[in-house]
Each structure stands twice: as C-alpha cells, then as structure tokens.
C-alpha cells in the first residue's frame, strides 16, 4: 500500500469546563491514503466532529490536544499558525454541516469563492480567480454559474449553498477534503444529489476524503473504508463491505439496523438503539457502550481494547466478544427481543 496521506496516532482531545474535564476524543488512530474515502460514523457527541476540527486546528485554544497528526510528511500539531494557514483551505479543505450559516451572509458567493482562491494564490488576478470560481460552481452543478457569483448566500437554496461550499472546498484542489455531516441539514430529497456532487468534486480533484456522518446508510458506494466512533472512542474500523455485512461490533450492528432501507422490501423494522450517548465527563465504567448493549456481561466492566480481526488489521473492533458475535443476519439484524 502507498504511504498514507494522513496518519493520526493516539489523538485525544479534552476540554476543561466548569463542570469538569470533557474527554471528547480518546486515543484514536487512523490513516487516510491518497485519493481514498474514509467514512467516520457515529452519533452526535461521539467525537467525530471534534477530531475533524482537531485535524483542521480549528478547536478553541482551551482544547487540550494530544497525540500526533501527520499530513503529507508534516506534523500538523507542531506547525506554526502561519504554516498551518497555508494548508487550511489549500491542501486540506473542509465542508461544514449547516450551509445556511456557514457562508458569510453579507458577502456575495463569488466574493467568498474568490477570496478562498486568492488567499492561497495571491498572484492570480481577480478576473482569473472569478473565472475559476465560476467553473467551480459549474462543476458542482449550479446553472448560470457566472451570474450566480454575484448572488448573496440568502439568494441560494440550502442545497445550492452546500454546493457552493463544496466548490469553495475544492477550489484549490486540496489533497484532503473533510466533509462534516455535509447533508444533515439538507432536505432528504437533495441529500443524495449533494453526495453525488461531493463524489464528482472529489474525482475531479483527486482528493482523499474524510466523510463524517451519523448516517451509516449514506456511506455505501461513497467510502472505501468505514470507521465507527462511540463515546470519543474508535469502535470498529474496516472496509465498507466488511462493516456492512460482517460487522463484529454490537454498536455498529445497532447502527446498521437503524438504517431505513429502500431495497429491503421485507417488513424489517427500523430499530434505533435504545438509551442515550454516554456522558463525556463521567463515562460509564468499562466499555462505554455497556449500558446500551444487549450483549453486555460482567466482563464488559473492564474496558475492551481494539481487536484485530484479520491479518492486515484492516478490520478491528472494540468488543470483548468481537470474535464470538454470530454472523450477521442482514435481513433480521435488527432482531432484538
């Protein structure tokens, strides 16, 4: 395998609040290779967004970040703010969750796209940057792109704004694109379109992508690998196929059974996981998923480590019973009593 573009080792993020220390991310390690797509899946509060923000160095200064993040041979956490800014929006770009608020309301879309281009390419003329911005908008499927540049964000629909955000993200041909819940805030009917646009944009630039989502169903056909997070911990990681059909983790299986399926015409019920995500200040003792897990035993009061499930360690799961869990019955995987 090629050398990784991004290599995260033992990343932990903690916040000190008046109520105590919030351990948002605990010792996660993963890699992203050039051009590949990694999906990071988890409920809100699982630490997936915080870890992405840590990659972008966008966390507030009160955040305590430990571990190493190596990107393209550079240690991101060690870079000076100035050097980091050279990467932000240039080699690593990010698309945020809510397109309604992520664009500055008082500047035109064109102004914000041109700014993104010229901040990293000061020699590009305004006119050339504008042309490039228009071609980016066209690429993400906005008709009359040139005229649309002069519109303000509020004159765009939600889906169009997210397209504009994607255009902004890829305008400097980044090596890594981080999409943080890019479709969550959008109408269900246009979610698929926007995912399509993201894929197209990624192909056009050859960027690797980290797709952060709480919707495991979105991942199929987009990501090569999936990484499931829960309570700030990595719970399972593996190739998408493996996760979908041979998951070795009760939490992942719960997520899968809560995917509404258009293909399964059977009476399969949507089965959301009962219970609430763990407190980040006082996590449950042992396995953090234990209170919600139907398989939990006394052994689960000790925290399980990540277990390798194949030779190459492509598939790993954080569960004492990873090997013992029965084969998934896809059709009835939601069957719980």
């Amino acid at each position: 395998m090629s050398s990784p573009l991004l290599s995260v080792r033992d990343l932990s993020v903690a916040f000190h609040t008046d109520d105590g220390v919030v351990n948002a991310v605990n010792d996660i390690s993963f890699e992203v290779h050039p051009g590949e797509t990694l999906a990071v899946v988890g409920e809100s509060g699982s630490g997936k967004s915080v870890s992405a923000m840590a990659l972008m160095r966008l966390l507030p200064s009160s955040a305590r970040i430990q571990g190493t993040i190596e990107f393209d041979g550079r240690d991101l956490l060690g870079l000076s703010p100035r050097d980091m800014r050279r990467l932000q929006g240039n080699e690593i770009a990010m698309i945020f969750q809510d397109p309604m608020t992520a664009l500055n309301p008082v500047f035109t879309v064109g102004n914000q796209l041109v700014e993104a281009i010229r901040i990293h390419n000061p020699k590009v003329s305004k006119r050339a940057a504008r042309e490039r911005a228009a071609s980016m908008l066209a690429l993400v499927g906005i008709p009359d792109a040139d005229e649309r540049l002069d519109n303000y964000p509020h004159e765009f629909s939600g889906g169009m704004r997210q397209r504009a955000m994607i255009a902004m993200g890829i305008s400097n041909e980044p090596k890594l694109l981080i999409a943080d819940e890019p479709t969550t805030a959008l109408d269900v009917t246009i979610q698929a379109q926007v995912i399509e646009v993201i894929k197209r944009a990624q192909e056009a630039t050859g960027a690797a992508m980290i797709l952060i989502t709480h919707d495991l169903g979105l991942v199929a056909g987009v990501a090569e690998r999936v990484q499931v997070m829960y309570g700030g911990r990595l719970f399972e990681t593996g190739p998408t196929e493996t996760i979908y059909y041979r998951s070795r983790n009760p939490y992942t299986r719960g997520l899968i059974s809560s995917i509404p399926s258009a293909t399964a015409r059977t009476e399969r019920r949507l089965a959301p996981i009962p219970g609430a995500p763990p407190s980040a200040i006082n996590p449950p003792k042992g396995c953090v998923f234990r209170p919600r897990c139907q398989h939990a035993t006394d052994e689960c009061f000790t925290e399980p480590g990540l277990r390798r499930l194949d030779e190459a360690a492509l598939h790993q799961s954080r569960c004492h019973y990873a090997e013992q869990l029965g084969e998934m019955d896809t059709a009835a995987s939601g069957s719980r009593t």
């Binding site: 932000q88 929006g89 945020f96 809510d98 500047f107 901040i119 990293h120 902004m168």
Partner: peptide, 20 residues
C-alpha cells in the same frame, strides 16, 4: 459558523475578524 469557514479557508486571524 461563517467565521469558522473563514478560518478554515486559511485566512489570517486579523482578516477573519476585521473583514468577516
């Protein structure tokens, strides 16, 4: 959020605050 977007673009802090 749009300030976060401006920072994610790699804009210098000064410009983030004074412009956006």
């Amino acid at each position: 959020d749009y300030i976060r977007t401006a920072r994610a673009k790699g804009l210098p802090r000064r410009k983030v605050i004074l412009k956006h």
